[in-house]
């Protein structure tokens, strides 16, 4: 009678290393798989609703008027006089050659093995050198923290097995996020299906972005020669409420 609890306890302790190893092995295997996170933006599916902008702001508690992702919207008129809507969802491109990293005087900006470019808030001094160096205007100095801020691909959500907030909320499914090292991932299959018809922003900058676009109007992939309604409009921050 008395042997049962002992046997049970012994069995438990005997099995414990195997359970621990069993739990550890898949995690180790996942590390070895080396995911490389990227995003594909299918502009044909984007309706410029700014749900991504709002979801990001709420998820990451961005200060008022400062955004990690936005959807720039353009009225484009062709030579025949036909006008249509073009969109450019913008965020940090998590470049393979990020120009924000070498300029940082304290090494606060870094690129993880999984491809995500992050800012170490403890180390950042708020000098904004990275803000200047980013060709995509993806960075800003957070008004609340006085430190560099940018899209993190919602790394805290990704680590918990969730999608970035902008991807999860996108009503048209225009943003596809995933591991480009995994050939069967949705993003890899979509990139393969696009068969080289994807593009990146400012390819001439040599930064090798990891945010890809399908259906991007080439005229919009950098500075755009054209009028801006923002320059014509009333701005509460500069002209008074």
């Amino acid at each position: 009678m008395n042997a049962h609890p002992d046997l049970s306890r012994r069995a438990f302790f005997t099995a414990l290393p195997a359970v621990t190893a069993g739990l550890a092995i898949p995690a180790h295997a996942a590390d070895e798989a080396n995911p490389h996170w990227a995003m594909l933006v299918d502009t044909r599916r984007c309706i410029a609703c700014q749900a991504c902008t709002m979801a990001c702001s709420m998820e990451n508690v961005s200060p008022e008027g400062q955004f990690r992702t936005v959807v720039a919207t353009y009225a484009v008129t062709d030579q025949a006089g036909k006008t249509g809507l073009s969109v450019l969802p913008r965020l940090c491109n998590h470049c393979e050659e990020p120009p924000c990293i070498p300029v940082c005087p304290v090494g606060a900006t870094f690129k993880r093995k999984d491809g995500i470019v992050l800012v170490d808030g403890e180390r950042c001094v708020g000098c904004a050198y990275c803000v200047q160096a980013c060709p995509y205007d993806a960075r800003f100095v957070n008004h609340h923290t006085g430190k560099a801020d940018k899209c993190t691909f919602c790394s805290h959500r990704v680590e918990a097995g969730l999608l970035p907030a902008c991807v999860e909320t996108c009503v048209g499914g225009a943003r596809i996020f995933g591991d480009i090292n995994h050939p069967q991932s949705d993003i890899s299959r979509r990139l393969a299906a696009a068969d080289g018809k994807t593009s990146v922003l400012k390819p001439e900058a040599g930064t090798t972005p990891r945010v890809f676009y399908i259906g991007l109007d080439q005229q919009l992939d950098g500075r755009v020669d054209g009028a801006s309604t923002a320059d014509m409009m009333w701005r509460p921050d500069t002209q008074g409420a």
Partner: peptide, 9 residues
Amino acid sequence: NTTVEVLGF
């Protein structure tokens, strides 16, 4: 093409 940035940041 000519463009007008309707919503810019």
